[in-house]
Amino acid sequence: MPRPALAQVTAYALALLSLLTALPASAQESRRPSHCIAIADAAPGLQYLHKAAWTDPVPEYSVRIQYLGHAAFLIQTRGGLNAVTDFTGYIGNVPMIPDVVTMNHAHSSHWTAAPDPAIPHVLEGWGEFGQGIDHYLDLGEMLVRNVSTDIRSSYGGTEERGNSIFVFEVEGLCIGHLGHLHHEPNDEQYAALGRLDVLMVPVDGGYTMALDGMVRVVERLRSSVIIPMHWFSGTSLERFVADVSDTFPVERRDGPEIEVSLRELPAQPTVIVLQPQWLRE
């Protein structure tokens, strides 16, 4: 991946500095620093690993990602942590209780008002109207944080900071879930996201944002693994694949899951199409 121009690096650095200085001194001292918020390029020559059942042990230095459905993914660590994105209260006919769930309130299919009280960490991607929310959950093996984004309100306006992009940092990987993104991030938001090795991207083409804008987001982030989500009949999925196929290779999987490690990611950004499947025994 080519290094950014000096002006862009400077802009990123200033944006990152403003984010850090805005934190209380106590927060800056106690927080584990994000390894994803960095200007330096990622290590070259990376490839990906292949799939395994969600009940199997996760290989060393790896993370398992399963596409459950709509915008929901299960992220599993070697140490046994389970995180679910855009949690609606249902992950399949299994008794597993996730350790952490994230939610966005753009639509009811991205959150639940009654999450199981047994879930230790329920992270809402919104706060008071227009105020947003900030998460920085350090679980040791996994760090979960968010970058607030705007959403369209139900009356055609804009709710500032009403949704979130969630980032999961685990095994040296930076895994980003764009959620119900309604606009292209600004430079400050891109800087706050940092490097994203794996990206879940909504490709519906309208409920979130137009495909040409989403393609620009994907091309700017240049994640090693790009997983389309939030597609319905498949028409928008195929349009997205067609739009990016001249830039990125595309791989299609028969199943819902993939295992990734920092040492074995694709050597160039690659779109990997997974088939959604709820968890089952």
Results as ranks from 00 to 15, higher is better:
D134H: 07
S148L: 05
V101K: 08
I39N: 10
I272M: 15
R280H: 05
F248G: 02
T21R: 15
A11Y: 00
N82R: 15
Y90F: 02
V58A: 10
N93K: 03
S26M: 04
F168I: 14
L139P: 15
A22H: 02
I91W: 12
T158A: 03
A113E: 06
R222Y: 02
Q28E: 05
G157V: 07
V241K: 06
E159A: 07
R3V: 09
M214G: 06
S223F: 12
V170P: 00
A43T: 00
D116H: 07
N163I: 01
I272C: 14
P228Y: 07
L274E: 01
R3K: 10
R78N: 05
L139V: 08
I258N: 05
A25D: 13
H105E: 12
H183M: 04
D187V: 03
F73Y: 09
Y61N: 13
Y12H: 04
V100D: 13
G130I: 05
M103H: 04
N186Y: 10
M96I: 11
A114F: 13
H183E: 12
D212V: 01
S153P: 00
L265Y: 03
E171V: 13
Y136K: 03
S26N: 03
P59S: 11
I165S: 15
A42Y: 04
A52W: 08
M200A: 14
G156Y: 15
A27M: 03
L20R: 14
S108Y: 14
S62M: 13
M209C: 14
H35F: 13
T149A: 11
E141L: 08
G179H: 12
M96R: 13
